[in-house]
């Protein structure tokens, strides 16, 4: 006998997000618009994002400059659109590399088990104590601030999470009867991994990746804001915020637009990630 705590999922506040499907749809439509703008970027920007025009600095929005200009007289709108390429491109690359590194290591250590597994996992446990942000700062600090170093440092930390998740699932599945049955019937290890284990890890990894994309974007923009990521004059959103900082008392638009851009991109990935997690019923790791 249990008390059923009712959990109706209807939301009636502004955006109507009824359930996980609505979250995913909402996130996907945001994302589609963003990607569309990003891809079309070079064709729709009214101005060169890099060309400074000191006579037009801190201009208000006009036909030529839809969102006005920054402290160097550069078109904010063009910089935002082109900056999306940098942010989304880097993030995509980082998450892709992380998945490519994390999954195989997790599969292999989980499947083989034994000493290799325990040694790797001890190391991984140790690394897990390192905050990725701090590590990224360190690498950026020693090797010099640049986008490449930033990417390396995020990948260096992020793969661990994927390895742990994948390994956990593999260990759970490895001892189930169907895997034993496949072994007995003469499947090779490679085939077992590919045919039986790989499909099991797809949805958790998908959810993890969707939620991570948001986090990676936030890390990149934070580091760029600190001046440790994208270097001027590159139009990266975090860096744009940093540029606008001295002027934001008088021209708050300089920081509002890039911030909103980051917010909406991260929000759409979070909507997709959380929607997928509820839909695929993946537990938090």
């Amino acid at each position: 006998m249990k008390i059923n705590v009712q959990m109706p999922k209807a939301i009636k506040l502004g955006i109507k997000i009824k359930n996980e499907n609505h979250m995913i749809i909402c996130g996907l439509s945001f994302l589609t618009v963003i990607i569309f703008i990003t891809l079309l970027g070079p064709f729709i920007v009214p101005n060169d994002p890099l060309s400074a025009n000191m006579s037009e600095r801190l201009a208000s929005p006009s036909v030529t400059y839809p969102l006005g200009t920054d402290h160097m007289g550069r078109c904010i709108f063009s910089r935002l659109v082109i900056g999306a390429q940098a942010t989304l491109g880097i993030t995509g690359l980082v998450v892709a590399s992380v998945v490519m590194i994390g999954i195989p290591i997790g599969l292999v250590t989980g499947y083989i088990g034994g000493r290799i597994d325990s040694v790797i996992m001890r190391l991984v446990d140790g690394l897990l104590a390192l905050p990725e942000f701090i590590l990224a700062i360190t690498i950026a600090g020693f090797l010099g601030p640049s986008l490449i170093n930033l990417m390396i440092s995020i990948v260096f930390v992020k793969w661990i999470g994927y390895t742990r998740v994948v390994r956990g699932i593999v260990i759970l599945e490895r001892n189930k009867d169907y895997v034993s049955a496949a072994k007995v019937s003469g499947s090779s290890n490679w085939k077992i991994i590919r045919r039986h284990l790989l499909p099991q890890i797809i949805s958790p990894v998908l959810v993890l990746a969707a939620l991570d994309i948001g986090k990676v974007i936030l890390i990149i923009s934070s580091l760029s804001y600190l001046g440790l990521g994208a270097q001027p004059p590159a139009p990266e959103w975090g860096a744009m915020l940093n540029d606008g900082r001295p002027y934001f008392q008088t021209v708050p638009e300089l920081m509002i637009y890039p911030g909103l851009a980051i917010f909406f991109v991260v929000l759409s990935f979070n909507l997709i990630g959380e929607g997928l997690r509820d839909k695929l019923d993946v537990k938090r790791h």
């Binding site: 948001g214 936030l218 923009s221 934070s222 804001y225 975090g238 915020l241 920081m255 911030g259 980051i262 917010f263 909406f264 991260v266 929000l267 979070n270 909507l271 959380e274």
Partner: peptide, 10 residues
């Protein structure tokens, strides 16, 4: 959702 999506420096 906002908290998870907003850059804290912003």
């Amino acid at each position: 959702l906002i908290g998870a999506s907003i850059p804290n420096f912003w």
